[in-house]
């Protein structure tokens, strides 16, 4: 059984359809890249999977681990193991990073009928993950994302992912606005967390990130449809030749249909 099975998904925002029938199968252990130009629907797909309420699914299905994902509230999706690393992580002044993470972890444990984690066990877990990700401990006592640099915010997302240990991680343009050092740091973090039990969807505009997080599959999203899929070489071709040839192909296909 696939971990994630998206079938003919149509979705949009404010009455405007953005995704015009997406189908995608992701198995545990796999890393998928979804590439595309701005406005192609990449972030819409990521947000629909995470359950952002502004987006409306008009038809299609999404099964996650055998459950109807679209039927679940955002927090239930998280508890089932879906993690969205935000393109723009939100600043939450007044909420301490450690407190927030522990509340999140305990909410997920409660969902699975487990006892709350003790403060000592939690700190041990957090310190272990910080070490793996080479993140400074000072991050723990700061309010969530408040005053963080772009790179710090993205690393904080990966840190949360490491602590919450999801089955499916969706990285929504995690590379955007980061310098090469920050990209390497984030990618190292993601790679350190790769496991046969976890799948990753990397949503990106650029191929560069994929030098560091090497995908098993690359899908190209154009105007709300996956127009082609391939291996990691597809990303390289996109980098050298751009998206124009795909747009022409798509137009030719559409023309032939008419």
């Amino acid at each position: 059984m696939a971990l994630l099975e998206i079938t003919d998904l149509h979705a949009g925002i404010a009455g405007r359809e953005i995704l015009h029938g997406i189908s995608l199968t992701v198995n545990a252990g796999e890393t998928h890249a979804i590439m595309g130009l701005n406005g192609s629907g990449k972030s819409t797909l990521a947000n629909v999977l995470a359950g952002r309420e502004a987006y409306e699914v008009t038809s299609g299905t999404v099964e996650f681990n055998g459950k109807d994902l679209l039927d679940l509230a955002p927090e239930e999706r998280a508890c089932e193991g879906v993690f969205l690393a935000f393109q723009y992580p939100v600043e939450i002044p007044g909420v301490n990073n450690t407190y927030f993470l522990r509340a999140a972890l305990n909410a997920q444990r409660k969902y699975h009928g487990l006892d709350e984690i003790s403060a000592i066990a939690f700190m041990a877990l957090v310190k272990e993950k910080l070490k793996i990700l080479h993140i400074d401990q000072g991050l723990l006592n700061r309010p969530v994302n408040e005053g963080f640099s772009g790179g710090e915010k993205k690393r904080n997302e990966i840190f949360q992912m490491a602590v919450l240990n999801p089955k499916l991680a969706i990285l929504d343009e995690t590379d955007s606005g980061l310098d090469i050092d920050a990209i390497r740091a984030v990618a190292d973090g993601v790679n350190a967390l790769r496991s046969p039990d976890r799948a990753t969807i990397v949503v990106t505009h650029y191929q560069r990130l994929l030098n560091y997080i090497v995908p098993d599959f690359v899908h190209v999203l154009l105007n709300g449809r996956i127009i082609t899929s391939g291996g990691k070489e597809l990303a390289l071709k996109l980098e050298s030749e751009g998206y124009a040839w795909l747009e022409e192909e798509a137009a030719a296909v559409a023309g032939a249909k008419n």
Binding site: E75, V90, A107, Y111
Partner: peptide, 28 residues
Amino acid sequence: PNQVFYLRSRGISETDARSLLTYAFAGD
């Protein structure tokens, strides 16, 4: 709403997310 969604996307219930943000507002 973005803050509420961010907390929920990590597994925190909507009620708790709202309370946590309210608490942070008072914390100032």
